[in-house]
């Protein structure tokens, strides 16, 4: 960490940067929305991955600038990013398994119609 301010450890982010980031986030959101509205037949299953990539890019922007990761200690960055590793592990290993017994779940006898709750 550099201590360019007098004795301080604060790193105020320049307002221009913050606003730029915000505009980028809005544009990316519009992009995802537009993608889902136009029927992109050629993309097919990729649509999902593109949407997720855009979301991750947005997440990266939020993390880097709104959450000051760009100026933060590397250790803190490591700590936070490690969480995604464990999430991937959790999703990945669970998913490897589930299709195997899908049929037993699908064929399990269902409860008959639910109680109506609506007034």
């Amino acid at each position: 960490m550099s201590h360019d301010h007098d004795g301080g450890f604060a790193h105020p982010a320049p307002p221009k940067l913050l606003i730029t980031v915000f505009i980028a986030l809005v544009l990316l959101t519009i992009l995802t929305l537009a993608m889902s509205s136009i029927d992109l037949g050629l993309m097919g299953a990729f649509g999902f991955w593109i949407a997720m990539s855009i979301a991750s890019f947005k997440a990266a922007l939020v993390l880097l600038f709104f959450m000051h990761m760009y100026w933060d200690k590397p250790f803190n960055v490591l700590v936070f990013l490690s969480s995604s590793l464990f999430v991937i592990l959790f999703i990945g290993l669970t998913l490897m398994d589930s299709s195997h017994y899908k049929n037993s779940v699908d064929e399990y006898p269902r409860q008959p119609d639910p109680p109506a709750l609506s007034p």
Partner: peptide, 8 residues
């Protein structure tokens, strides 16, 4: 998103 901006 806007609330995030104001927070930042």
């Amino acid at each position: 998103l806007f609330s995030s901006l104001t927070m930042a």
